[in-house]
Amino acid sequence: MEPVKKLSSTITPLDRINVDTDQIIPKQFLKRIERTGFGQFLFYGWRFNADGSPNEKFILNQPPYKDSEILVAGHNFGCGSSREHAPWALQDYGFKIIIAPSFADIFYNNCVKNGILAIRLEESKVKQLLEGGKEKQSVTVDLESQSIHYNGEQWTFDIDPYWKQMLLNGWDEISITFQYEDEIRQYEEQHH
């Protein structure tokens, strides 16, 4: 996977809480057997009207956010189904970083495995970013220093050191696990 390091982008503010993966990518688009091509269906029910025309009111359809790579949303983002098609769709659409006060556990894992940086940030700061996004402001995120630069301020965020290394280096986790082959075999000899 592509390493994540430092990124500046306009903020796309999705000011909703409990956004579930059924909204991120509805089930009628889960039938592809590839990992690619899901971006066109991202937030389908919100992005498009019933007749298939773009819903101009939805944030992603407004011009300033067209090339944004950073999505900011309310708490418990990515709840519901474990479908990895959700991060695939976000990434394929162009988002590399998602910032929210909290994420659902499975969704968070799925992001890391695909090189998407999901940042848990205090609610008050997320609110500032949501407001700033509405004013078309930008934010800079630096994973190495775990810092966010916004509106002249600098904030830090927490991330598990293991996941941080995975993201910075774009490692293939399975190759890492193969280094523990002897321990896996020993476990199997005792238990299976």
Partner: peptide, 8 residues
């Protein structure tokens, strides 16, 4: 789990 973890 997600599909990457399925592969793992």
């Amino acid at each position: 789990i997600g599909t990457s973890e399925v592969e793992h």
